[in-house]
């Protein structure tokens, strides 16, 4: 088990290095995408700063909590798609029958295919998340350690959620648009304080659009330095990922090849 895990982590490192080298072939474009995403996230921080300058407390949340929320979502989303970038076009890959080439490798299909691409802008998100947390929240070592663990949990959640929504193409034909909209809802809800929502919407945030595992539990865990909230966040991420993997492999039985000629460099 440990040997398998080490072996897989080696594969992750190799793919990340290769994907990064491929991105750096167009160094200017890569840097501009990273910087643009960093600034894009920064604009939201400006919005929240303006908001909290005018209204200092929002249902018990302060500007520091919202910065933590943005740091968590951005770094989780960034890490997920910087390493597992193929999760974004997964619905399209399935619909167009482009999994064949990945089936030829002596590797487990899903964890391998997800490594096939890197989103350049995701590096901007990841850098932004860690930078703003360090610069604005100024955590002690304990808080920072917990923050790093929770960003990994958020990244796992985003990957699992992406697999779940992308796998809908096995059942619905081309579900790219549906997957995009569902992901959009997830990301959007993840960037607003969960305390804004009550009732049925709150329930939605822990089920259909599981943003609460990014926007509430991790922030509470860091506010109170609570292992309980951290474990709940991790359990949510593992649950969503398990569901995604299950739906993917159930759907795979219905997969039809696109008979496409493909070459991978």
């Amino acid at each position: 088990m440990l040997k398998q895990l080490t072996n897989y982590l080696g594969l992750v490192a190799a793919y990340t290095r290769l994907n990064l080298n491929a991105q750096l072939e167009y160094r200017g474009a890569f840097i501009s995408q990273v910087v643009a995403m960093f600034l894009n996230d920064g604009v939201w921080l400006v919005f929240w700063t303006l908001f909290f300058t005018r209204f200092p407390v929002l249902r018990g949340w302060t500007i520091n909590d919202v910065i933590t929320l943005w740091a968590m979502t951005a770094s989780g989303f960034g890490l997920a798609h910087a390493i597992y970038g193929n999760v974004l076009p997964l619905a399209g890959l399935v619909a167009q029958g482009q999994l064949d080439v990945w089936m030829l490798y002596p590797r487990a299909l899903l964890p391998h295919i997800l490594l096939g691409r890197m989103s350049a802008s995701a590096w901007g998100d990841a850098l932004f998340g860690y930078a703003v947390y360090l610069v604005f929240v100024r955590p002690d070592l304990q808080h920072f350690g917990l923050f790093v663990v929770l960003t990994l949990s958020a990244a796992l959640l985003f990957v699992g959620f992406g697999v779940l929504t992308g796998s809908l193409s096995f059942f619905l034909g081309n579900a790219s648009s549906l997957a995009d909209q569902w992901r959009f809802a997830m990301v959007t809800f993840s960037t607003y304080p969960a305390v804004l929502f009550d009732g049925a919407i709150k329930l939605l945030l822990y089920t259909l659009v599981p943003a609460g595992f990014v926007s509430y539990l991790p922030v509470q865990a860091l506010r109170e330095l609570s292992p309980w909230y951290a474990l709940l966040a991790l359990a949510g991420a593992l649950g969503v990922t398990a569901m995604g993997v299950l739906v993917f492999y159930l759907g795979l039985r219905r997969y039809e090849s696109g008979n496409l000629m493909e070459m991978r460099g």
Partner: peptide, 12 residues
């Protein structure tokens, strides 16, 4: 080389 970053900044 790429103007998409510039567009993103403009829109934000």
């Amino acid at each position: 080389e790429d103007t998409s970053g510039l567009l993103l900044i403009y829109s934000r």
